[in-house]
Simulated assay, not measured.
Amino acid sequence: MSGPKLREVSVKLPQKRERPDEPWHHYLTVDLIWYVLGYTLFHPFVSCVLVLCLRAQYTPWHAPEMRVAIAWAMLMTAVGIFGVFSDRVAYGRPREVDLSEEVIVITGGVEGLGGLLAETYGMRNANVAVLDTKKVDYDEAEEKGVLYYECDVSNAKQVEAVAAEIVEDLGPPTILINNAGIVHTKSILDSTAEEVELTFRTNTLSHFTTLRTFLPYMLRERRGTIVTVSSVLGHLGAANLSSYAASKAALLALHHSLRAELAQIPDADEIKTILVTPGQMSTKMFGNVKTPSNFLAPVISPAEVAKDILKLIEKGESGEVAVPLYARYAQVLGVLPVGVQKIVRSLSGVDTAIAKAGLAKKEASEKQ
């Protein structure tokens, strides 16, 4: 069966002057090295090919290099097989996904990561509904192939009203991407009660609202995918980002609770869940924040995160998206000795980044 027909859109390519000139080593990161190793030395197929290459050179089976190559190939194969079985045990069988039969709801989908996801699906003629407080004119929405609904996701009544419109316009939602978020770059003492409440209403409580609103449709359809966009700061916390980090940390518990509840519902076997915990992205939210090490903690583009999200959604799988590499292992920091934790935090600059960027006492909030 052929996939959905691609929508033709006009694209303005960036001019050379719009892209900063960076030295070659700027693009050399631990993530790139890990990616290359994953498709070479650490890949089961490549490891087995190495054994065949040695044998083609008439290397004796008892030779040390042959024994090492065979042992390495067996180890990599075992690790690969274990990973497949581990994912199957944790997430079950993937569901079939046909974009022409899916209705995709994206919160905070006008700009940033959500905007990129919405436009990508719009170009592929998928049924996309975006919930955002920002307005998009009709011509722009028509060009992108996306339906935009002006909605404050922190307001339960607005979400419920928009949900009825989406069902009438597109059909019952089957893919929910909870992406909306705001940040107040203030210390705990400088934060007002209203700012903290708004952060939690938008970043956390909105997820409860959208789940209560859209999950029943997925249960009736007996299929669906729910994407929870959290942050690596949910594992770490950070100075001058207390309300943001706390609201994102709550999403980690919400995701695991959601998975536990879905496992107890017979009709939820085909409802998949995806947890997204990215590091710093090159969006407006943290645009002026500098990474302490571009090699170990590179700033990633929304496209890198969106690529992994799209892959899991369209393969019909549950899973986790954590990029760059350090985001996968950030939670390990909590099991290290407290002295080591302090040293790592100091070297990472996580607690001084906002102050150094001059954002610590910024009054206005910026939306994703």
Results as ranks from 00 to 15, higher is better:
R17L: 11
V344C: 02
K356A: 08
D269P: 08
S242T: 10
Q368W: 12
Y326E: 11
E314C: 01
L205P: 02
V229G: 03
K248F: 00
H207R: 10
Q331P: 10
D132S: 10
I313W: 01
A249S: 07
G237F: 10
G108H: 04
W34T: 13
S10P: 15
I106F: 01
K157C: 15
P278S: 02
E119S: 15
A357F: 06
K12D: 06
S191M: 14
A364P: 11
Q264C: 04
S100D: 15
C151E: 08
Y217F: 07
A322V: 09
E111F: 13
G3F: 15
Y39A: 12
N178V: 09
T29G: 00
Y138A: 15
A63H: 06
A355I: 12
S47E: 12
N288D: 07
V84L: 10
V84G: 06
K342F: 14
Y149V: 05
V68E: 14
L233Q: 00
A253Y: 01
T174D: 08
Q331C: 14
I182E: 09
L117G: 00
L189I: 08
T120Y: 10
W34D: 14
V227K: 02
L75P: 12
E261Q: 15
E304C: 05
Y217P: 09
I104F: 03
V350P: 03
A263T: 05
V30A: 13
V299D: 11
K135E: 05
P337L: 02
E111W: 10
E22F: 01
F214D: 09
V350W: 00
Y39D: 01
V299Q: 07
S2R: 11
Y121W: 08
Y91G: 12
D351G: 12
V332L: 11
M285E: 13
M285D: 15
S47A: 14
F295E: 03
S247E: 01
L251D: 15
V128P: 10
D137I: 00
